[in-house]
Computed example of a mutant assay.
Amino acid sequence: MKLHEYQAKNLLKKFNVPVPDSNLISNLEEITTIQNNLIFPIVVKSQVHSGARGKAGGIKIANNINEMTKYATDLLGKQLITHQTGEKGLPINSVLLEEGINIEKEYYLALTIDGSVSKPIIISSPQGGMDIEAVAEKNPEEILKTEIHPVAGLLPFQSRNIGFQLNLDKALFAQLHEILTGIYEAFVDSDATLIEINPLVLTKENQLIAADTKFSIDDSAMFRQKDLFNIRDKSQEDSLELEAEDQGIQNYIKLDGNIGCLVNGAGLAMATMDAIKFAGGSPANFLDIGTANNPESVVSALQIIGSDPDVKAIFINIFGGLAKTDIIAEGFVKAKEQGLIQQPTVIRLAGTNVEDGKRILEESGIDFQLADGFAQGANLAVTASIK
């Protein structure tokens, strides 16, 4: 689950991470209640779950109340379209009015989990305020990764090493350590998967401030992070993903392609998407139906896929272990009979009860293509998607 910038900063403040003073508004009337307390310039920042807001016109600098009101008017209630949101964009339901900062230098900090070492890592770079991917590609030597032992936690010498890597004055090392400690404590306490501060600003007053923040929470931690999940903004999430969640389908992710995928097992689902790409197509979703041994679960999953206007063909790829292929086949037949999917469908079945599954499909009289193998199924699905 992603947090908005203002939510992330409110959380970081609890862990003594310095952030700019700000006010959140969701309508223009709220300006009148705060305007006497504002010190210009003010940065007007649209609150959406996307990066590259500035490039898309979602961040403006106002030098007076008239400019600020105009920018807030231009942004509130609109859709912000960035390279991360797709053509539809995301709704701007609120804007953050944030004090301007006297910027001397910008740095990059992030804390995430490195699965290859099974530890939290801090990623730091003296090149802040830009895409870290671009830094990694052009100047990989400018990126430092610091592993944190989950028992020992962040140690002072690690903060000093990061300070040296950022070329900070030693007088700032104590500030940096307090910020890094706060970020790490917030990360652990919130079951976060990512905290990114880009940029971490050194002001002309010699203060380090988290100027912009991304914060993501592990969805699996919902049961113990109820307060955080209560502030979740579903308006920023894909409608099909929300519908899948309401149907009890936890492993559906909308993608940009046109071939819907229904697969059992995350590994097979990833391999299925690879096979589609190798065959010249593009998957419209990730969907791991797991050990769904209830036809209604299959019907619900196919309803989600079939309702996606981008889907031009469907590939059902099942290798039955605990999942029974005859149940999958029964669910597919029901979905077709109920008119939930109109797209041409390719089915590949293998494993538990495969003969029963194929018999159910053949006796249904429903139009579909049966694939004998993995690659053949992907090729058939791609062909069907471009007819």
Score class of each variant (00 low, 15 high):
379 N>E: 14
49 H>V: 10
243 E>H: 02
55 K>H: 09
281 G>W: 03
373 G>E: 14
244 A>V: 13
175 Q>I: 03
160 R>F: 04
203 T>Q: 11
86 G>T: 10
62 A>D: 06
71 Y>E: 09
145 K>S: 07
376 Q>T: 13
48 V>D: 00
88 K>H: 13
361 L>F: 06
310 D>T: 03
296 E>I: 06
209 I>D: 03
8 A>P: 08
376 Q>E: 15
285 N>D: 09
383 T>K: 15
22 S>T: 01
175 Q>N: 13
37 N>V: 04
144 L>K: 12
294 N>G: 04
246 D>S: 13
212 D>S: 08
252 Y>D: 08
317 N>H: 01
293 N>D: 13
351 G>I: 11
275 A>H: 08
52 A>Y: 08
47 Q>E: 14
111 L>D: 02
160 R>P: 01
277 K>D: 03
229 F>R: 09
197 I>V: 14
292 A>R: 03
49 H>W: 08
270 M>D: 10
294 N>F: 12
279 A>G: 03
46 S>V: 05
335 A>N: 07
282 S>C: 14
366 I>E: 14
170 K>I: 14
271 A>T: 13
308 D>V: 07
142 E>G: 00
263 V>M: 07
226 K>I: 10
20 P>W: 02
184 Y>V: 06
7 Q>W: 12
96 L>R: 00
14 K>S: 12
142 E>N: 09
173 F>E: 02
114 D>Y: 08
77 G>F: 06
57 G>N: 10
380 L>P: 02
109 L>E: 04
380 L>N: 11
81 I>T: 15
40 F>N: 06
212 D>Q: 08
125 S>Y: 07
119 K>T: 11
172 L>E: 04
8 A>E: 01
69 T>S: 15
256 D>W: 02
298 V>K: 03
185 E>Y: 07
360 I>F: 11
270 M>H: 10
21 D>E: 12
111 L>P: 00
311 V>Y: 01
149 H>W: 04
291 T>W: 03
222 M>S: 14
136 A>S: 15
100 G>R: 00
297 S>N: 14
293 N>Q: 13
96 L>H: 06
181 T>A: 04
134 A>F: 01
141 E>M: 05
243 E>I: 09
213 T>Q: 09
244 A>I: 08
154 L>R: 05
349 L>M: 07
241 E>H: 12
99 E>D: 11
3 L>P: 10
376 Q>K: 15
114 D>P: 05
323 A>Q: 02
50 S>N: 04
107 Y>Q: 07
206 N>V: 10
244 A>P: 09
280 G>R: 10
53 R>E: 09
235 S>P: 03
306 G>C: 10
359 R>K: 15
306 G>Q: 12
27 N>V: 00
382 V>M: 05
33 T>A: 13
